[in-house]
């Protein structure tokens, strides 16, 4: 500092503030980092997360064949207008996070929430095995083996879940597994709000 301090007391305060500034920056940085780590743990923060381009829009037009052996009907865009909020869940048997979120989907289904499933790039026999072993949370299930319908939804990985309000507009998208925290903090309140 080349400035001569006319008031020594002010200069002392300034020096003290300058000493504390790096500490404050480090403290804030640490708090931010901690919040990020916590968010990573609970699934609330995803550094690679990207907002969906479809939020506020109607889902794309599509029609997918059913999965033989489940007895469930296939899925098309017209099936997404039920007058109630619902979830559209993309999954695959080869997807490990899908296993993590599966109990949460089962719980939602037990609570009466309609979940429409889309098997993404999966062999039908493998999808069937996955659901036989773990239970089927889906009301309807479409098979998207080429993954083309998924691209129309803007999907970039599995699992991915979209929440549609009662008029069939996409309101929320989760790229990644629905953990218990996300179920409690985001899905359940949203389902109530969009009903």
């Amino acid at each position: 500092m080349s400035e001569a301090a006319p008031n020594p007391e002010a200069a002392a305060w300034r020096r003290r503030a300058l000493l504390l500034a790096p500490l404050a920056v480090a403290g804030l940085g640490g708090a931010g980092f901690y919040a990020m780590l916590r968010g990573l743990g609970t699934g609330n923060y995803d550094p690679r997360g990207v907002p969906s381009a479809l939020i506020g829009k109607a889902p794309p037009d599509f029609s997918l064949p059913p999965l033989e052996g489940t007895g469930l009907p296939g899925l098309s865009a017209a099936d997404l207008k039920t007058g109630k909020p619902l979830l559209v869940n993309f999954f695959a048997s080869w997807c490990v996070p899908c296993v993590i979120e599966h109990p949460q989907l089962m719980r939602l289904a037990r609570d009466g929430v309609a979940i429409m499933g889309i098997a993404y790039k999966d062999k039908p026999a493998d999808s069937l095995g996955f659901l036989k072993q773990r239970g089927t949370p889906y009301a309807r299930l479409g098979v998207d083996q080429p993954g083309r319908v998924a691209i129309d939804w803007g999907l970039y990985g599995v699992p991915e879940t979209y929440l549609l309000d009662k008029s069939g507009i996409i309101r929320w998208r989760m790229a990644g597994p629905i953990t218990e925290e996300i179920l409690a903090q985001q899905v359940t309140p949203l389902l109530r709000r969009t009903a």
């Binding site: 990207v50 907002p51 969906s52 381009a53 479809l54 794309p60 691209i151 129309d152 939804w153 803007g154 970039y156």
Partner: peptide
């Protein structure tokens, strides 16, 4: 592509 995946 932009309609499906957004600005990113």
């Amino acid at each position: 592509v932009h309609e499906r995946y957004g600005d990113f």
